[in-house]
Write a protein that binds this DNA or RNA. Sequence first.
DNA 1: TTACGGAGTGCTGAG
DNA 2: CACTCCGTAA
Length: 820
Amino acid sequence: MSPPKAPTARPQLDPDEILAALNPPQQEAVRHVDGPLLILAGAGSGKTRVLAHRVAHLVASGVPPYQIVAVTFTNKAAGEMRDRIAGLIGAQATREATIGTFHAICARILRREGERTGLTRNFTIYDRADQLAVIKESLRRLDLDDKRFAPAALLVFIGQRKDELADPATAMRQATGFWEETGARVYEAYQRQLAESDAVDFDDLLLRVVLLFEQHPDVLARYQRRWTYLLVDEYQDTNRAQYRLCRLLAAVHHNLAVVGDDDQSIYSWRGADLRNILDFERDWPDATVVKLEQNYRSTQTILDAAHAIVSRLAGRKDKRLWTDRGAGAAVSIFDAYNEYEEAEFVARQVERLASSADRRRGWAGLLTRRADDAPAADAADGASGPLRFGDIAVAYRVNAQSRVLEEAFMRFGIPYQLVGGVRFYERREVKDALAYARLARNPADRVALERVINVPARGIGDKTVSELRAWADGRDATLWAAVEAATENANLATRSRAALAGFAELIRGLVTVAAGEPASSVLEACLERSGLRAALEDGSEEGEERWANLVELRNHAAEFDEVAAPEGLARFLEEVALVSDQDTLEERPDRVTLITLHAAKGLEFPIVFMVGLEEGLLPYARALDDERELEEERRLTYVGMTRAKDRLFLVHARHRSAWGSGGVEVEPSRFLADLPEDLLEVGGGRRGPSGLGWVRDGGTDDGSGTTPTVWGRIRPGLEPLRPERLPDLDLGSGTFGRTIPVASGEAATEATGEAAAAEATPPELAWRAGDKVRHRRFGDGIVVTSQWVSGDEEVTVAFAGHGVRRLVGSYAGLERIDGR
DNA sequence: TTACGGAGTGCTGAG
DNA sequence: CACTCCGTAA
């Protein structure tokens, strides 16, 4: 996303050549030049390819590259798009096009035009943690109780208002009830504080550009002239602000091409509005619609299974994916006793799949379980080479599920990489260092200032900071102004004044460095002068590790050194603020990828394990009482399944522990029951009547010999994970778990000495999963599970807005609000 | 002002 | 279990 350069001479491209390698619908999408275009692109239908070829075709047809803007969902996707386009039209011409995420493009626009809206070009982008700090400060200023008005809930409230393009006044007008009125007041205070800090949050990046365009038609007209061809990827995940942005930019020329798949819409919780794609044809009556239904990624079996999940959605755009790759292997279901066995199963399968024997013979043999079908050869992308760890991904609903998997992989010595989780930029020392860097550019950044004013400790305690706040509040000044004026502040102790003078001097020095030195030098100065380095180098192993992180941070900053000061630092901070989890994913051929289902969107792997297919996890507990949310869980399941190219494993456990407590019994996901039996092979678990209509009797291997199934047998010489939690694995005759001593309808019992005691407890539980209840404090919720714990019933309830709570039955005073 | 330990509490998802 | 918050002692 370098600044546009004057168009340069470029090699002549032949439009027909660009079309050559595409199928007919793809060609239609690429050949379409003027007017609105909706590309309904199913998973794996080659949409990135179509987008890239479309850009190339536009250029070949005479559109100057700088008039093209392509919007992607992540920076990583932008990079891939850029590479692909460069492969077609050359790097030189590609550099002239604008390719990036909505957020990055808007940040760039605001950097250039923001002064009309009261921002300086030094503005800071606040992340979620910063936002929470601002909300807490706003609550303090309004003298509100953060118990009654939970910062996280307010953040959601404010975010929703912004997604709808509602300002604080509008939010106040539309407020229903006291809580929302208060929310609107907090919203107003929050915005005021952002303005004081010369900062914007993620939503503001979009919102402010929309407002800028709406209030300054001249600016809008300039961008309309500049960008005459718009391409938007992942259109199903756009929110109202992004939608409005598209409409504004395309209002004159109508050259808006969007690509999306309503089946893959999984971000409604952050404002994505499915109507944007469903109503595209109504918004643009002259729209051309192209459906891409040929899939180049998965086997037909995987596609059929995935279709069974998604075909039950109401009001979806009708489409069905097909492939000419052949049926391929059955989808494998594994029924584990608990999450430890689940993880062990995955690890063992990974080990087996990547074993040297399989590697030598290639792994085509693994893909031909259904004998009537031709081998699922895929010469096109070379998938038939030796299988590597990097060909395997394990996907799960929530990050917390990764831990048990990591433990199992470590045990088995399987290399893995984790996407998401504790992110690099969220580590404390990294945030501290970045706070200094932010202050070096923008000392008004109050969140950064409060973060590091006493880090490392320099004798500026809470009392001193409170006095500074009072000084600033009384004068309507920034906290930084209060720091600078501290030497004249009689309310401060002499010692505090001295400490503050030192701190002010430190920041002023950093500001000077930031004005003229490259980004890495600024980082260097931040680390050294602040004392961060000295504080970390205390000889401890932890300190050493943290220091290593800061060195990495500085090295990353050095990548921006070629950009002249002060822009280099600005670019660095902007990129750091806008990186996504997916952006941090490296293509490591030697590592298994552990990833959330959300982050896995847009990726593909030859082999995918989806774990935790259980009621309460997928679908997630909080979605159980809401049909729309359930549909989103369904789409999320679909997204996960369609990541798999050749082999898909769906794994669920019968018992799962939640935050430290022992395992409770869980039901298999309803989505499993939607899968056609003839596409599946089932392993693990108890045989026979199990309440699962789809469980097949008999063993797990069909005897064809092409799938060397070893399920149900613990590997000799390897102790089971957490043996105390597992039933007698190695006594099971070919299958796991025999019969587990759990009375029907009753709570889970560990397969330990506790079992006997638990079995003696009275079995009548007042509550069961799915019951709708009301609690006097938490409001309405849904029972996730209920079990006997030391003589009382422990009810776990998911409350709307209050999270999942465990309550003691006899005290909770739960009220049944409907149903049984 | 800081360091420590115990208590309390929370797990969607993410730019 | 893993984090943050809070009170207390140094």
